[in-house]
Amino acid sequence: MTDADERAAVAERAARAGARVADERFRSDIAVETKGEVDVVTEADRAAQRTVIEAIRESFPDDAIVGEEEDERKTVPDEGAAWVIDPIDGTNNYVRDIRVWATAVAAVVDGEPVAAAVVAPALGDVYTADAEGAYRNGEPIAVSDVSDERRATVAPTLWWEFDARDEYAAACEAVVRRFGDMRRLGSAQITLSTAAAGGLEGVVSNLRANPWDSVAGVFIVRQAGGRATDLNADRWRHDSTGLVVSNGDLHDEVLATALAVEEST
């Protein structure tokens, strides 16, 4: 097994382990804390993150860990090996008993993802990506081949704070004026994975994404044949401003949507 193969196996194993912990507590009487006006966290988030880290440490004890909860580092190093984890992406869905949430794990080397897993146990879906491609429940997936804007569905993603509601409104307006339909799923990692599997033609935000909300899903999209850039149409990185993801055929249109949101500020 190559190092890349091992990292892909560990990413999936760790994500599955964390997802099991979160799923055991799903739709239970769990206490909810707030980290901001709408950002919430539960003990399930913390327990799942600890489980993910334990699974990674069994094989890669010295790698850096980038995680949403507790005292893990919050930025991706540009050199060396690291793991980017989100124990429950979509916690607002989770605490509302909505099934759209996932545990996400990405393996990164020198700032670039090399493997990823997004496990959505309440939906029964496991998305993975390695050096060879992208998969859902073990079967290869590919982005949509839709090239007609009127047949396309695009999702605005990430969260616009209350002082940026004009941007949120602009994002929704820009999507519905350009494309056939819009979805907002409430979990960036599931949204990106859905695009990788052809369920969406685009995913768009003018914001800088947290790495735990984005790195795994972007890698899955790319390995499924999709494209991800920043607002300048440059290749998206973990520290980019703007997240513009598409099936490739409609990238210019999705990018124009993101720029329209940015121009509204």
Score class of each variant (00 low, 15 high):
residue 2 T to N: 15
residue 8 A to S: 10
residue 11 A to M: 03
residue 13 R to S: 13
residue 21 V to M: 01
residue 22 A to V: 05
residue 23 D to Y: 10
residue 23 D to G: 06
residue 25 R to T: 03
residue 25 R to C: 00
residue 26 F to A: 03
residue 26 F to S: 05
residue 26 F to K: 02
residue 28 S to K: 08
residue 32 V to S: 03
residue 34 T to F: 07
residue 35 K to R: 15
residue 36 G to L: 01
residue 38 V to C: 01
residue 42 T to M: 05
residue 42 T to A: 02
residue 45 D to H: 01
residue 47 A to N: 07
residue 48 A to Q: 03
residue 48 A to L: 02
residue 53 I to M: 03
residue 54 E to C: 08
residue 55 A to G: 05
residue 64 A to Q: 14
residue 65 I to M: 12
residue 70 E to G: 06
residue 73 R to W: 12
residue 73 R to L: 08
residue 74 K to L: 09
residue 75 T to C: 11
residue 83 W to T: 15
residue 86 D to E: 06
residue 89 D to M: 05
residue 90 G to R: 11
residue 93 N to M: 02
residue 103 T to N: 14
residue 109 V to H: 13
residue 109 V to M: 12
residue 109 V to A: 15
residue 113 P to V: 11
residue 114 V to F: 01
residue 119 V to L: 06
residue 120 A to C: 11
residue 121 P to W: 06
residue 127 Y to A: 02
residue 128 T to Q: 10
residue 129 A to C: 04
residue 131 A to F: 06
residue 133 G to A: 06
residue 144 S to F: 11
residue 150 R to Y: 04
residue 150 R to E: 09
residue 152 A to D: 01
residue 154 V to N: 08
residue 164 A to Y: 06
residue 167 E to F: 00
residue 171 A to P: 12
residue 173 E to Q: 14
residue 175 V to A: 13
residue 177 R to K: 13
residue 179 F to V: 13
residue 182 M to C: 08
residue 184 R to P: 00
residue 184 R to A: 08
residue 188 A to M: 03
residue 191 T to G: 02
residue 192 L to M: 11
residue 199 G to N: 09
residue 201 E to L: 10
residue 201 E to P: 04
residue 205 S to T: 15
residue 212 W to K: 13
residue 217 G to K: 08
residue 220 I to Y: 13
residue 220 I to C: 10
residue 222 R to V: 14
residue 224 A to L: 09
residue 227 R to F: 00
residue 229 T to K: 04
residue 233 A to N: 14
residue 234 D to M: 12
residue 236 W to D: 08
residue 244 V to E: 09
residue 245 V to T: 10
residue 245 V to P: 06
residue 251 H to Y: 06
residue 259 L to I: 06
residue 264 S to L: 02
